[in-house]
Design a protein around this nucleic acid. Structure first.
Lengths: 197, 197
DNA sequence: TTCCAGACCTAGAAAAACTGAGTCTCGAGG
DNA sequence: CCTCGAGACTCAGTTTTTCTAGGTCTGGAA
């Protein structure tokens, strides 16, 4: 009953690259450099003994085998996601890349969100930016900003609201819809509330 | 479309341990030490934020969550195996079928390559043969023989060379090019070197 | 009791993954 | 026909992860 399967991390790289048909975009999604994705995919191809991609100077094409393999792998990862969420809804496996707008940075403690070890655990990196687009291509997992919506299909929660005066919220925490309830988001929102309390 | 899933290698450890209800047996199956399995599972549990096993002094019990998770993971790995075999029948993660020429057999320990559990893990079966053709149609994964090349597109490494006397190598390990760097090949070559040292 | 099996822990070694900087190739635009 | 830009590749070096080796602890069996 021993499974004959390739190194699993390479599969993740392959799946993302196949979806984007780009190592660069896949790298963005996975939070690594394009070189890393390239290497992982190459190693996977070596271990399978077949080519999955045809490399073109301006992008990728799947080979016939890659074309056949990619949807299977996507299905596998989806099923894995489902199974995992069923038993562990707030999987704590991925650190967040966080965007922070300049005004928000002023309102928050000096080294936020690195000011406490508790929160730091959930943060991979922080960039100063306000660009919600970055959430869609997975360059960022969430953004903390002063600017209002509309946030479209994104999820947002407001922090520092003062309903008595009718004033608008001071800060907004914004992320893709599926991410709002996960542990990382909750930790960040909780901490923001503490900081503005 | 970013999958929120735990580290994949830990899942393999978990799945094997859940099937055997033993880290030790799982370790045997995976070709690592029990400590490694223990650590992988522990890390998985940490990233999920739940316990998968109850540790007893003489074995393991699945928790309720582990009980729910294990069949899902088995299914996922099975599907992965199926998908992989469909496109790459000679995946190099499998056990090797090994050819051995009669002279080589004389130079090596009695039950080689079954003489140590370490090496045995990587071997599916052994035949006495010298026929390099069998490597091309995947009847065999590798051949250990005294005969020289030419090996053409095959990869070969020499073992027991005595360069000072200019004598030729005693043994050659031969396999298809893509297989030379894989774990199985390395284990076999290392063992051959030990045996002739 | 004493043994033994199996899980656990920790330090250090080994392997794998990632980065960063530079190269190469092609397509587009002047 | 050049030059530029994008994207993939390579390689060395670093960081992170994984594995091992050796020792501890616990509870069941003789």
């Amino acid at each position: 009953m021993t499974y004959r399967i390739p190194a699993l991390n390479g599969l993740r790289a392959f799946e993302a690259a196949a979806r984007h048909l780009s190592f660069k975009l896949a790298a963005g999604e996975l939070g690594v450099t394009p070189g890393a994705v390239s290497q992982q995919v190459k190693k996977l191809e070596a271990s399978l003994g077949i080519a999955l991609f045809r490399r073109l100077p301006h992008g990728l094409l799947l080979t016939r085998e890659g074309e056949a393999y990619s949807p299977s792998i996507s299905r596998v990862l989806e099923e894995l996601t489902r199974a995992t969420e069923a038993i562990a809804p707030d999987l704590n496996a991925k650190k967040f890349s966080l965007g922070l707008c300049p005004k928000a940075a002023c309102l928050l403690p000096e080294r936020w969100p690195r000011h406490t070890a508790t929160l730091d655990r959930f943060i991979r990196d922080v960039r100063v930016t306000d660009d919600l687009e970055l959430l869609f291509d997975n360059s960022l997992d969430c953004i903390v900003r002063t600017g209002e919506g509309p946030f479209g299909t994104l999820s947002a929660v407001s922090i520092g609201q003062t309903p008595s005066s009718g004033a608008q919220a001071l800060l907004h925490f914004v992320c893709r819809a599926g991410l709002m309830t996960c542990r990382q988001s909750r930790a960040i929102v909780d901490d923001l509330r503490d900081c503005l309390a």
